[in-house]
């Protein structure tokens, strides 16, 4: 069985974002694999290593050449091959549609995406991609396992979880808990990454629907109101009578 993991290249989550117009100031920004995508990849690698019958793990991204270091990191930690669609990821639909076009020619049994990207917080690429490929999708996935050649998918629901079984192609959007820690690439992996296939293709002509036309900074919050540790009653009073939240 083959797994296709969608990766997005995002600024490190500790970045203090600054904008020049609607463009992110990229000076000094460290780019990383979107944390949820990285967890998805980590789980795919765990499955492959556990002898669950995974033959190949491919990663796919929509991005320009500057996304290649993060793709190569994915190869260094164990993905078998990579696809890069040479275009900016304009919006969720554009991204999903580009991947869908390419995925038609890639053999896969499972597609994994992170539940959202840490930059645009679009939360949509996975669901859109599944719709375009006309395959089922599961969101809020907290575990993926293989049993007798079938996918066992744990989905978080309010107050608990469900286990779903799929015996054909499915897309999962994964969240925290799917894998323990992202991998640190070993040096051998880093050296091998250059030798693994990284296929670059051109985007198909498509419209994007959304464009960011302005950036607005959040209003700075008013100053914290501090209470004496000996006077807990005043905090309780403030929450009741001033903030009206108790």
């Amino acid at each position: 069985m083959n797994i296709l993991v969608c990766l997005s290249n995002v600024p490190d989550t500790t970045t203090k974002v600054k904008f020049n117009g609607t463009k992110l100031e990229t000076e000094g920004v460290q780019w990383i694999i979107n944390p949820w995508d990285e967890l998805a990849l980590t789980r795919a690698l765990e499955l492959k290593e556990s002898g669950a019958g995974i033959d190949n793990i491919s990663v796919i991204t929509v991005g320009l050449e500057d996304a290649e270091p993060t793709i190569r990191k994915a190869l260094a930690i164990g993905a078998d091959d990579a696809y890069r669609i040479n275009s900016e990821a304009f919006d969720s639909f554009y991204t999903a549609a580009q991947i869908a076009e390419l995925a038609k020619n890639i053999p896969f049994d499972l597609i994994m995406t992170g539940f959202e990207s840490a930059d645009y917080n679009g939360v949509a690429v996975g669901a859109m991609l599944a719709e375009l490929l006309d395959i089922p999708s599961v969101g809020a996935v907290s575990a993926v396992n293989v049993k007798d050649g079938k996918w066992l998918i744990d989905r978080e629901i309010d107050g608990g979880k469900e286990v779903l079984q799929f015996d054909s192609r499915v897309l999962v959007s994964v969240q925290k808990g799917i894998a323990i820690d992202p991998r640190i690439p070993a040096m051998r992996g880093i050296m091998n990454a250059r030798r693994k296939p990284l296929n670059v293709s051109n985007p198909v002509a498509l419209d994007s629907f959304n464009e960011i036309i302005a950036i607005e900074l959040p209003r700075s919050k008013s100053k914290v109101k501090l209470f004496d540790p000996e006077d807990v009653q005043s905090l309780l009073d403030a929450l009741r009578n001033e903030a009206h939240v108790l």
């Binding site: 290649e68 270091p69 190569r72 990191k73 260094a76 820690d181 640190i184 690439p185 070993a186 040096m187 880093i190 050296m191 250059r194």
Partner: peptide, 18 residues
């Protein structure tokens, strides 16, 4: 080089995480 940066990051990740 890209490899040198990746090694630095790997060392950083291990140190800061473990």
């Amino acid at each position: 080089s890209e490899e040198q940066l990746m090694i630095r990051q790997a060392a950083r990740d291990y140190a800061q995480r473990e």
